[in-house]
Design a protein around this nucleic acid. Structure first.
Length: 664
RNA sequence: GCCGCCGUAGCUCAGCCUGGUAGAGCGCGUGCUUGGUAAGCACGAGGUCGCGGGAUCGAACCCCGUCGGCGGCUCCA
């Protein structure tokens, strides 16, 4: 996928395709940052870069054309269908179409039609239409019409792309003809909401992909199958780590002894990290009375996701978050500015009633344990604390992931659409400052004079966002900003990791919160004896034990670092005459705290190795007469490489590896 | 909650279209085998086919409902 660096000159009035003729695999041209179809005529003399079919941008163009091909095929088979939009994605494309539900048989039919159209090598032609023409052309399709009305200014114009009878409103570019789309495949069908709004129309979303060649498509499909084998649900069963009982506890994981070993090792490590950075451990109840959830704002926003119950006339809620508990502990006494920061951590198990279609495996269970923490701070301590937490994230991920692939996102308020966020408003009439969330309040008025002349004050949001931004920069991390993704009470840093099939999951999070401390009236006493507001930081380093385990298991294909492995050593005696020696070295390893066992089953050596493989032990030691005589062991590693060494060397090696939490 | 696919032994799956009351491999048990690096041999046990209802002489199979799982959408740590 190497981009051709060479640039070519193109004359005014010349087609890019002509300027680049004779170069294989070119499907578009780029001038500056603008992509052009090969059929485009250059507006001036300039230099252009060829976009190769095999480049990242080339593939996106190919896939965008694939989406058009899909829509064309659907329309040929279902003339009443109304296509909405069909973008390329990371590994394919989809198209949202308003139509009757599509079965898997129909999907095959559509795919066949796509191949038919592709094999006809129909030219894809670009045309320029003004807004009136566009609206006339797509008048029968309310979704397209709405898009045109929104995107094109009055008197403006835009391009459409035609392939035979099919036309789509699109800025392109596209491949020159449908023959480029032979290696296409439809992958799945689902429903999606128009504009992502569950109150609007349901669209049929068809997913597919297309590659430059059949070979690449086959490789992609094979890779997907390989990834499915790394699914943590499958590996969790093979390795006997956890289970789900869908009848008795849907969405609730149950951990076996092996799975519990991993959790406990993760906890042990996090306790070390926590205490080295001043986090004290606390323990809070799983159940609180309704009053705390009203005060914290959870009932207002979160009640449908909570397990609640009544007992003897009192209402209770099982905790979906740990913050109210930590606040209750913090609030037990009065703090001087000298006492801060106060940092409370807890492996807090929370319960959230997720909707049926959202639950899945360890990545989205209804019960999970957060390595939670809440820091209670002065304003001037915020940046340092965020930095300290970012360092914890970096340190822990270096121990958990051999090749960390983490994305740091700065989730901010969207000042254009601030209704969903809690913000300060100042009354232009009487000067009162109040905090409100427009989406929850409806009409907003000044609480003291009822004036509607309220102007938003983003100072707190800006300060908090700048603190996060500064900490990210000082930590030397590259990150992306996402306006509108903030929590309703404040901006946050979200750290994401990918699972086996490259879905992103949020793991760590650092959130600045100035509203919840205010709800609970938290304050400290400053040097001049005044009450000052507490700033709170919510943080999770692993995120949840469930998700981090799923990500680690999928990322390593079950080959966990030795310190986390439930089976650090399994000893395989070749026959009964070496089993005494096997027991002896086993006892030695156990006495050093190494998780070791002897496979005494009545099987051949090769059978044992095959069977043990599914448990993903860190080391298998084969011992027979030779090893007994020498006091050695034959070490078989996770990568199946083998080496014979003196037992005491092996014991030291494993011991060091575990103690230093190394990968090998 | 919405759309598609799926639910048969501890696990992986066949049987369902074309109804006649269950089958394989692994695993498990017993015995033989003492085996040197990804399946040694034999025998055996194990299933109210997710659950409820309907049509049928008869349902794992057809129809309806329901619960659950998977992939997406929405939501979300």
């Amino acid at each position: 996928m190497e981009e051709k660096r060479t640039r070519f000159s193109v004359k005014k009035g010349e087609k890019f395709g002509d300027a680049l003729s004779g170069h294989d695999g070119v499907i578009a041209a780029k001038v500056g940052q603008t992509l052009h179809d090969l059929s485009d005529v250059s507006a001036e003399d300039s230099n252009c870069t060829p976009i190769l079919l095999n480049s990242e941008e080339g593939i996106m163009i190919l896939r965008h054309s694939g989406a058009h091909l899909l829509a064309q095929s659907v329309l040929q088979l279902f003339p009443k269908a109304l296509p909405n939009a069909g973008p390329p994605t990371e590994d394919g494309f989809y198209y949202d179409i308003f139509m009757d539900p599509v079965s898997s048989e129909t999907l095959t039919q559509i795919e066949k039609r796509m191949h038919d159209i592709a094999s006809k090598k129909i030219p894809i032609v670009k045309k320029m239409l003004n807004k009136e023409e566009l609206l006339r052309k797509f008048g029968g399709n309310k979704f397209k019409s709405e898009r045109i009305a929104e995107k094109i200014p009055d008197g403006g114009k835009s391009t459409v792309y035609e392939q035979a009878e099919f036309t789509d409103f699109c800025t392109g570019p596209h491949v020159p003809h449908t023959g480029y789309l032979m290696a296409s495949k439809l992958l799945s069908v689902s429903s999606a909401y128009y504009k992502g709004d569950e109150n609007l129309e349901k669209m049929v979303r068809i997913y597919g992909t297309v590659f430059p060649t059949r070979k690449e498509l086959d490789e992609f499909l094979e890779l997907r199958e390989e990834a499915a084998k790394r699914d943590h649900r499958k590996l969790g069963q093979e390795m006997d780590l956890y289970l789900f009982n869908s009848e008795l506890a849907p969405g609730f994981p149950l951990y076996t002894p092996n799975g519990t070993i991993i959790r406990n090792e993760l906890m042990k490590y996090m306790r070390e990290l926590n205490s080295s950075r001043g986090w004290e451990e606390v323990t809070t109840p799983h159940v609180f009375k309704d009053e705390i959830w009203r005060k914290s704002g959870h009932f207002a926003k979160y009640k449908p996701n909570m397990f609640v119950f009544d007992l003897n006339g009192d209402g209770y809620g099982i905790k979906p978050m740990n913050c109210p508990g930590h606040i209750t502990i913090f609030d037990r006494k009065v703090y001087s500015y000298r006492d801060l920061p106060v940092r409370y951590s807890e492996f807090g198990t929370v319960y959230r009633y997720e909707k049926s279609g959202e639950v899945g495996g360890l990545t989205r269970p209804r019960m999970f344990t957060i390595d939670d923490g809440h820091a209670f701070l002065r304003l001037d301590q915020v940046v340092e604390e965020i930095l300290s937490i970012l360092e914890m994230v970096k340190e822990s991920s270096s121990k958990l992931f051999e090749e960390p692939e983490l994305a740091f996102n700065l989730s901010l308020i969207d000042k254009q659409n601030p209704d969903n966020f809690l913000i300060s408003y100042k009354c232009a009439n009487c000067g009162t400052v109040t905090e409100m969330r427009k989406a929850a309040e409806g009409e907003i008025k000044c609480p003291s004079c009822s004036s509607e002349r309220l102007s938003p004050d983003f100072t707190k949001w800006d300060d908090a966002s700048n603190s996060l931004r500064e900490a990210l920069k000082r930590a030397g991390l590259s990150y992306r900003e996402f306006p509108g993704d903030a929590a309703f009470y404040g901006p946050k840093i979200d750290i994401k990791a990918r699972d086996a099939i490259r879905r992103e999951w949020q793991i760590s999070t650092i959130q600045v919160d100035f509203f919840m401390p205010a709800n609970f009236g938290l304050y400290y006493v400053s040097a001049d004896g005044k009450k000052e507001p507490i700033i709170m930081l919510h943080r999770a380093v692993y995120g949840s034990f469930e998700r981090i385990m799923a990500i680690m298991i999928e990322g390593s294909a079950g080959k966990l670092p030795t310190w986390l492995s439930p089976h650090q050593v399994i000893i395989v005696p070749v026959n009964d005459s070496s089993s005494g020696y096997a027991e002896k070295i086993n006892a030695d390893l156990l006495s050093h705290g190494i998780r070791s066992s002897v496979d005494n089953s009545n099987d051949t050596v090769s059978k044992k190795i095959r069977t043990l493989h599914s448990l993903r032990p860190s080391y298998i030691l084969v011992v027979g007469q030779k090893e007994v005589d020498e006091g050695s062991v034959t070490v078989r590693r996770k990568d199946n490489s083998q080496e014979k060494m003196p037992f005491k060397d092996f014991a030291k090696m494993v011991n060091d590896e575990i103690r230093e939490r190394r990968f090998s």
